[in-house]
Structures are given as C-alpha cells and as structure tokens.
C-alpha cells in the first residue's frame, strides 16, 4: 500500500497528431498540497481533463484511492471523491445558487432527503461565503463569486482530492488570500489539493511541492524553492 491517493503514470494525449501531453507521471499523497504550473497552452488543463475523465488519455493509467480509474466515467470518479473546478466557471445557469450546490450533494454524495440536501448546501454556501445569495441566479454573480461557486460545488461532492483549476485568476490580492485560507482550511480537514495557478505568490505560499509542465512534458517536480531555481523552469518562465 502506498500513501498515494492519486497516481497517474505515462499519461499521453494527442489531438490530431499534436501531442498535448507526453508521458506525464504524477502522484499526489494523502493530505498533500501540490501546485501545478506551466505557461499557457502547456497542457495543464488537458492533464486535469484526463485525470477527471472529461478526456480519455491515449496512453497511461490512473489510480485513485487504490482503484484503477483509467476507464471510469467522469461522473463515477466524482462520486468516488475526485472533484474539480473549471478554469472558466461553468455554473448551472438555469438553477439558483443553492440548487447548483445541491446537484453534487444529490448525485455525487448520494443524499436522498430534500431537507438534508438543503441543510448541507447552506453549510457549504456559508463556508465559501455565498450564504446570503443562496436563492439568486448565478447570472448576477461577479467573477470572484462565480469562482467561489465553482469551489462550493466541488466541495459539495465531499472530495478526497480537489483539483482547483485557476480559481484565483483575475482576483485581487485580498481575494486571493481569502481563497487560499479556504483551501488551507479544506486541506486541514484532510482533502488533498492540486492547485493549478499562474499567480506565483499563491502557488509558493500554498504548495508543499511544485510540478512544472512545459509543452506537454513534466520538466520539474520537487520542493517549491528547489524547483524555482531549476534552469529549465526559469527558461520556460522568463525566456532565454
């Protein structure tokens, strides 16, 4: 038995001959906080899509919580505790904010009673700071609030692993701190977190380990300070 909650080996994904990911290995320990960085278009979101089952990798295997999930459909991965947020928020626009949260409570967690679901949704909305807006439509939300809704919906699935795909992009410094505090709190509750982010201050503050993907290949994996000093990483980020 390993302590890895998530284990991806040799993940390769091609789009019409273009190699978006080339044999990427990645492991996440139970309770770990890892940052995933890389320039735009380097394959970070493709990687997340392969892990969560939105895309099927051409090669490689994924193990989650000691089960092979390489062929498992996305909804079943979510049920087993693999949750994500989307880089561009994708709320259910026809529903209220509370109903948005109730979808994973009903389908991923498997609650049946409407009362239990409603109460659990309230708790989550309070946690992400949207308690006051429960009955509103997501159409009226600001960018920050939409990202909080994304996080809330991911949390509602009671995940073991949370993949946060650029939840802080475009946020102010204090808003970034707010989200970081929330992520740290979740991590303290035992959720392993993979943070994909461009805001380096947040990544450095948050991560116990950093993984760097450039042009579909993993080029670094280690302690934040060590990784940031690697020549290849510097070159990828700052140019020659």
């Amino acid at each position: 038995m390993t302590a890895n909650i998530l284990d991806a080996t040799g993940i390769t994904k091609r789009f019409d001959g273009f190699a978006a990911l080339t044999s990427v290995d990645f492991a996440l320990l139970k309770g770990e906080r890892v940052g995933l960085i890389g320039p735009n278009g380097s394959g970070k979101s493709t990687f997340v899509n392969c892990i969560t089952g939105i895309l099927a990798p051409d090669e490689g295997s994924i193990t989650f919580d000691a089960n092979d999930i390489t062929k498992t459909p996305a909804w079943l991965r979510a049920r087993r505790g693999l949750a994500r947020t989307y880089q561009i928020p994708r709320p259910f626009r026809g529903m209220t904010i509370q109903e948005n949260i109730e979808v994973p409570l009903r389908f991923a967690v498997g609650h049946k009673s409407a009362r239990v679901i409603s109460e659990a949704a309230q708790v989550i909305l309070d946690e992400v700071g949207l308690g006051e807006k429960a009955d509103l439509s997501p159409k009226g939300l600001t960018q920050v609030e939409l990202r909080k809704l994304e996080l809330g919906r991911a949390l509602a699935a009671r995940p073991k692993v949370l993949i946060a795909d650029e939840v802080m992009a475009g946020l102010s410094e204090s808003e970034v701190d707010e989200i970081l505090a929330l992520l740290n709190r979740l991590n303290a509750e035992g959720i392993s977190i993979l943070l994909i982010e461009h805001i380096m201050r947040a990544v450095m503050l948050f991560s116990q380990r950093i993984v760097v993907i450039v042009a579909g290949c993993k080029i670094a994996d280690g302690l934040p300070d060590d990784v940031m000093q690697q020549e290849e990483v510097e070159r990828a980020y700052l140019g020659e």
């Binding site: 909804w75 626009r93 026809g94 991923a108 967690v109 919906r153 991911a154």
Partner: peptide, 19 residues
C-alpha cells in the same frame, strides 16, 4: 434535476456526479 443540470452544462454535470 439531473437532466436540468445536463441541459445547463453537461461536463459540469458529469463532474458533479450526474450519470
């Protein structure tokens, strides 16, 4: 409820556990 989630956003519905 599941169909409504699919109508709004099928990928997001899947990641929320909707089969």
């Amino acid at each position: 409820i599941g169909l409504a989630a699919i109508r709004d956003d099928e990928s997001a519905a899947e990641t929320s556990g909707v089969p």
